[in-house]
Design a protein around this nucleic acid. Structure first.
Lengths: 94, 94
DNA sequence: TAGATATTTAGAAAACTATCTAAACATAGA
DNA sequence: TCTATGTTTAGATAGTTTTCTAAATATCTA
């Protein structure tokens, strides 16, 4: 939910790779897991963290659960970085 | 040095607050520490992590050590987020 | 409803991180 | 060179995170 949760979610390389995979299109939990040298429950854990941070959404289609990017939070984060690059005036953080 | 180090550095709220403080201008380690309810060695530790991630630079002026933002890494991070918002084509991560 | 497949939840172990206190190091000025 | 001030380093501890295996839940098909 919070800004902080999103930053922490993105701090992990496995989760960033998941996000990158989802840029190419929606994927099931199993398809995502197949890209990693890691057990499925571990990947499921990472997906849960991304979901809690609102960076991804999930939907069930029969037996499968599809994951997709939610770009609205990325826009907020983008803004945070932009403000640093612009070196503008003081701003409040969370 | 790496992208990953920068993401991990930014994942901590204390460190994000330090970065925000530095947007208003360069500050000494002591001035930075005065903004936190935390012992100086702890703040020094956070500064070290920000420095290793190349998000800040430091310079000594006599007894004081001044910290300042290094916006070049912010630009790289900005780009990473931008690519998600744009939903462009596949890209490589680190 | 039974069996197969997809995914998550639970609980535990190992690794990592943030914080503290005490001590060390660096500089300035008497 | 001695002392005061500013800052970091070292080492310990508590809390958090990542990963694993085993078990549970959900859906589909026969």
């Amino acid at each position: 939910m919070s800004f902080n949760e999103a930053f922490k979610a993105i701090a992990d390389p496995t989760r960033r790779k998941i996000l990158s995979l989802l840029r190419t299109g929606d994927l099931t939990a199993g398809e995502i897991a197949s890209h990693f040298d890691m057990q499925k429950p571990s990947v499921s854990h990472h997906l849960k963290i991304l979901k809690q941070a609102d960076l991804v959404q999930d939907r069930r289609e029969g037996q499968h659960i599809y994951y997709s990017l939610n770009t609205t939070v990325f826009q907020d984060l983008l803004r945070w970085f932009y403000d640093f690059v612009e070196k503008g005036e003081k701003h409040g953080e969370e």
